[in-house]
Amino acid sequence: MNNYTKQAPKPVGQTSIFTIRKRSFALVFAFVATLFALSSAVANFSTAKGLESIPKAIIWMAANFVPDEKAISRLPNILSKLAETALLAVAVTVCSALCAFFFSLLGTKTTKINPWISRAVRAFASFFRNVPNIVWAILLMFSFGQNILTGFFALFFASFGMLVRMFIETIDEVSSSCVEALHATGATFLQTVFQGIIPSSLPNIISWVLYMVEYNIRDSALIGLLTATGIGNLFDLYYKRLDYASASLVVICIAVMVISIEIASNKIRKVIM
């Protein structure tokens, strides 16, 4: 009898890893299937219609959603709105990053200012992060009207909340050891910030800022739709006029813009990190 062909005896009282894997897979599958069925019922969604709509959408897009000559003649207007949106995204991100950096200094464990202040700052940031930016946009619309400042502040509040969280995590991760060393030498708070925290965490912070610029350009389309400003409003205008050729050019311009910013940020990230 060849020993190698014999199966290894099963250990008593211990299920094999394959059985556990199969069981957990079945459990997850059942959970997802239930969630799917319930969600379809609640949202009144039919999978058949959804699947049907994709080829229909592709055919429709190929026929109507292509820039024509009239759309090309609108390119200067689209590009100027796009430039405005991009500058807005950068301005919002830089301003919110400056505020967020200040607040994250109060919020990190690294600077050890006061546990209660730290907790308060985290809750404050969480508030701005979790109130949806469309609420900020609607609230600001009441007073600022259809103005670029409406978009600016709506994006600002949401970015601020996100960046405080990112910066606190970054500072705690990257700077804590050098801050400890500076504390040991008796450095003051400002010295710790300027000689320790900023130099060590700046590459990561810039990386987050670049990510946030990209994010804000995409989000400004949504805010623009709601507040009738910027590139989102331009898309909405063409879309409601059923001028899909021009609307498609807006979409293509946004995509090109976001992709070029993504490529540029990835290059910058590779050099600075």
Partner: peptide
């Protein structure tokens, strides 16, 4: 390319088709 176009614009485009 798909990621570069904002979600809301995808939904609006599909609203016309679906």
């Amino acid at each position: 390319f798909i990621r570069a176009v904002p979600t809301i614009l995808w939904v609006l485009i599909l609203t016309v088709a679906a």
